[in-house]
Amino acid sequence: MKKIVLLFFSAIVFNNLNAQNVGIGTTTPTLGKLEIRGAAGTGTTVAAFGTDGAGLAIQKDASGPVIGFNHYRNQTIANSLGKHFANGYAAILAQEVNSGKIKIDMYDYGTGGGFTAAGRRALTIFNSGNIGIRSEASSMATFIVPKLNNYNGSAVFSGTTYTSYFQYSPLENTYIRGGIDNAKVILNDVPGGKVGVGKQAETPTLITSTLSVFGSLKLPDKAVSADYTLTEDDFTILVNMANNATQTIIITLPPPDATTDGRIYIIRGINMPEISNYDNATGWIKVNNITEEYYSSNKLYYVYYSGGAFGTAELSLMESFTVQCIGNQWRILIRSHDTWFQ
């Protein structure tokens, strides 16, 4: 009978406890099934879990709530950012209730029970939803990433083969690459889109063309002294004849098709030998794949012709071509041609 009465009493007590909230630091818990007020010692740690290892702590900092990972605060002293539960690294996730910011701070390796060193701000999420990586300088940009002391820069984006870097190395150069061979980098491909290059490009009203370059322009040049086929890496080709009238140099343009449409080359002869006739078998530069219809139109030469106009000797120098692929044809845009008489 006594056992039955005790069992009945225990059931009533358990049922009452189960229906009630539990308070620590308060006799009137109403905000949750478990409500804790206050913190341990002179610190800010409200609750600690897994304290036999790298535990987790719920803290109430002056600026807002904090979750400590292998991090707790049980006392407050000058310049203290907390302690390590166990040997290892630590971190905190915190909110500033007055600004709405959420912050993640990282701490270096430390010993269990030892104070942490100064932390590093890894991530800031502003109340607006904007994000700062290692920065909380401004909430006016959607994404803020400072370079700081990172050699590889402020951001690295890796493709399958190649990587783009922003503010790379102490020189802070920026490399924008496609991710694989033959990939393309496309800029401002919108109706009316324009691109500005150079210091003055920071004034948008000065960018009036599809490409506006404010300053000098560098284009590749190459000197050759033998037959050569131009590639997508060429622009100006200097063909050195070395005053040798016994040789002929063939310069071949790439096939005119969709892959070369619009491309421009400059082909210029230097140290041209003097030959006596346009029909000479040697002594000139021939450019293959040019679509022209009249005599010697694809040759660079220096002709000394004794039967020139007005009974005088005629000197004719075809020194350079500027050609462009238009559709499926290479056309001469500019030809540098001088003729004089003796």
Results as ranks from 00 to 15, higher is better:
G192S: 06
V224D: 00
K194E: 00
T205Y: 14
G215Y: 10
I237E: 00
L211P: 02
D221A: 12
T210Y: 06
A183L: 11
G192V: 05
V190A: 06
F214N: 12
L219G: 02
I186C: 03
L217Q: 11
N182M: 08
D233E: 11
G196P: 04
E232R: 14
I207D: 02
S216V: 02
T208P: 00
K222T: 12
L206W: 09
T236R: 08
V185A: 03
K222S: 05
A226V: 15
I186T: 15
D189M: 07
K194A: 03
G198I: 03
S216C: 00
D221G: 11
Q200F: 07
T203E: 12
T205H: 11
V224L: 02
P191D: 13
A223T: 15
L211G: 03
D189A: 14
E202A: 13
V197T: 04
D221H: 10
Y228F: 15
V185I: 14
L219E: 07
G198V: 04
A226W: 13
Y228R: 11
G215I: 07
A183T: 13
V190S: 08
A183R: 12
L211S: 05
L206K: 15
K222H: 11
K222I: 07
I237F: 00
L206Y: 14
K184V: 12
L217D: 04
L187I: 14
I237T: 06
D233W: 08
K199E: 12
D221F: 08
I207K: 03
P191T: 12
P220T: 12
N182C: 02
A226T: 15
P204F: 10
Q200A: 13
K218S: 15
P204A: 11
A201T: 08
G193H: 08
K184P: 03
T205P: 02
I207T: 09
S209Q: 15
V224N: 01
V185R: 02
I207S: 03
K222N: 10
